[in-house]
Every structure is written in C-alpha cells, then in structure tokens.
Simulated assay, not measured.
Amino acid sequence: GNEGLTDYLEFSANVDQLSHPELSEKGMLRASTMIGNPICIPHLMLSFIDREELEKQDLAAIKKSGNSFRGKGNWPRIEEIVPGYLPVYPGREILIELFLVMQQTILVLERAVEDEDYLIREEDSEGTLLVRVPMGKGPKFRWKDHYLLPDPGWGEVSYSVNITAGTHSALSRLPEASQVLQLDLFMLPTPVVEKGSRGYFPFVLMLVEKGNGLIRSTSILAPQPDLRSMYESVSQRVLDELVKSGHRPSKIEIRTDLLFDMLLEILDEAGCSVEWVDRMPEMDEAILSMISGMS
C-alpha cells in the first residue's frame, strides 16, 4: 500500500547515498541493518529459488495451481513481509489482493502498449498518476481509471513520542559533559525464533562516543507487538540511558529521520544539542564489531 511504497522509495534513496566505492563493506552493512530496510517495509515478495528451499505451503500451492517448474532457481515463492518479523506464507486475504493487483497490472501494461498516452495524458499536470479504483459490489463490480495528483503527505507515517513524566526534567538537571555522542537504531541480521511464536529481528539502540568509538550503552528492542510500538518506545529509552549515565552530553549526532524527528524537540528542551549528520564512522565500526562477534 501507500506506506510500503513510500518506505521503499525512501530506502532506495538512502541506499543510493551509501553506494560509494569507499564504503563497500560498511555501506552494505548499513543498508542491511538500517531502519527502513526491506524487512521493515510491509510488502509481498516474489522470489525464484531451488525446490529444496520451498516450505510445505509453497509446494502445496504450486501443486494446487497445476503448474510445474524445473531447474534450479526457477521455483516461485511468495512471502508476506510484516515489518520486523520473519517472512511468512501469505494468508487468504493477502493472496486475493495479490491476484487483483497482478490482474490490474497486466491490464494496465496491455493498454499502455496500445495507447502511448494512457499512463501520461498531455492535459494532466506534471506528477499526475493513473490509479485504478474498484467501484461497486457483486455483479456490478468494476474498475475505473482515475488520474490524480498525489497528496504531498501521501504515505507518510507519524509516530507518537511517549515519555514518562519527570524523565525529561531529570535529564535537564544533570551536569553537562564535554563529549559528543552518536545515536543510532539498527536491526540485527540474526532473527530470534521462540517456540510457539513468530520469529522476529531484534533491534539495537546504541550510543557511541565520538572520537574514541567507546560504546556508552546498548538496548535490545523487539518489534512487539509491532514495529510502530517499538519505534514509539525509543524516546523514553534514550532519555533513560542518558539519565543513567549521570550527565548530559554536549551534543548528540543522529543520521536517521525517524530518530531525529522524534528526539530533536525533547532533547533540545532538556539541554542536549542535536545535530543531523551524514556519516558516523565510529558508530559504523561499533555496529560492524557487534555483528561480526555474533557470527
């Protein structure tokens, strides 16, 4: 939906920024662990793999379809990505939705081949999109073309900032230290699988001292009950860790929109300067060290 597409476009733009030759290993690590990576985006994924990699549900669906496949890398697998969790075989409603989407995609492509002005009409304003909208119910159900200008806020998601009364003022009363901290939230690539529950990818909220790379604190977070709830708990976690340290840093560097937007105001009011940065080499080293130690 809107959220998935918007998140994907943002992730794609971030990956482009990381695609510098000198980043190589660290750039790839950043892309795979950053919040907003594909595991954090709600979507359906179609991949072609070997038969041995398919689950029972995949094989049953292929058998029921009456289609046959041969050779390595030619067997289709459909997975539903619920943000923060291990991919699973989609449920009935999702599969019906996928069928409708694919059906309309093929129809639009066929019409676009026949009519070069079908997707982009001369009379429309720049940025106008063709949207196929379902109309009616039952026998009267049909699809209709709409040419619409997207809302500037289309697909954007806002998060609540939830903090406990007193934590904010407690931080503001602490003495200031002449240190700069780097703050980041990233996903660990190794999932947690517990019996009787769905596997998920844990996240780490980390504070690193700029200059010497000393890790000041780490908090392990789970996307439970969902990723949104986890994100909304981050502000309180950050305040708790700073209060626990016994002093206010002179500045905190952040490189992700999510953290910057949620923390800028509350940290500024508590007397902590916040700065947006593009690069955090000390943080990258700390993340690489943590993940390497897990393998």
Rank of each mutant, 00 (worst) to 15 (best):
Glu110Val: 09
Leu54His: 07
Ala60Trp: 09
Arg92Trp: 15
Asn14Cys: 09
Thr33Tyr: 00
Trp75Pro: 10
Phe99His: 15
Gly91His: 10
Tyr89His: 14
Asn67Phe: 04
Met102Glu: 13
Ser68His: 05
Glu97Arg: 13
Gln103Ala: 13
Glu122Lys: 10
Glu25Gly: 06
Pro90Glu: 02
Phe69Val: 01
Ile35Tyr: 12
Gly127Val: 01
Asn74Ile: 08
Ile81Phe: 06
Arg70Ala: 06
Lys63Thr: 12
Asp16Pro: 01
Glu123Leu: 02
Ile78Trp: 08
Ser24Ala: 09
Leu23Lys: 08
Gly36Trp: 05
Ile106Met: 06
Leu107Cys: 11
Asp124Met: 01
Arg121Gly: 04
Pro42Met: 02
Lys72Gln: 12
Ile96Leu: 15
Leu100Asp: 14
Val101Ser: 13
Phe99Cys: 13
Ala31His: 05
Met28Asp: 09
Pro90Phe: 08
Pro87Met: 11
His43Asp: 13
Pro83Val: 02
Glu79Asn: 11
Ala112Gln: 07
Ser47His: 14
Pro90Gly: 05
Ile49Trp: 10
Gly91Ser: 05
Asp58Tyr: 05
Asp58Lys: 03
Pro76Thr: 13
Glu123His: 04
Gly127Asp: 02
Asn67Asp: 04
Arg121Asn: 07
Ile35Phe: 13
Leu107Gln: 05
Glu116Gln: 07
Phe48Met: 13
Pro134Phe: 06
Leu23Asp: 06
Glu53Gln: 15
Arg111Thr: 09
Asp115Arg: 07
Val88Cys: 00
Glu114Val: 03
Tyr85Leu: 06
Pro38Gln: 10
Tyr118Arg: 02
Leu129Tyr: 07
Val82Pro: 01
Leu44Glu: 08
Gln103Ser: 12
Asn74Arg: 09
Ile81Leu: 07
Met28Cys: 06
Val101Gln: 12
Ala31Thr: 10
Gln57Glu: 15
Tyr118Ile: 02
Asp16Trp: 06
Ala31Asn: 05
Ala61Thr: 09
Asn74Gln: 12
His20Ile: 05
Met45Arg: 15
Arg77Gly: 14
Arg70Lys: 09
Ile96Lys: 15
Ser32Gly: 11
Pro21Arg: 04
Arg77Leu: 14
Lys26Pro: 00
Leu23Trp: 04
Met45Ser: 15
Gly36Leu: 10
Ile35Thr: 09
Glu97Thr: 14
Val15Tyr: 03
Arg111Cys: 08
Ala13Cys: 01
Lys63Leu: 11
Glu97Gly: 15
Gly27Arg: 00
Asp16Ala: 14
Asp50Leu: 06
Ile62Gly: 03
Glu126Trp: 02
Ser19Trp: 00
Asn74Val: 03
Leu107Thr: 11
Gly84Asp: 11
Glu123Asn: 08
Gly66Tyr: 01
Glu79Thr: 13
Leu18Pro: 00
Pro90Met: 04
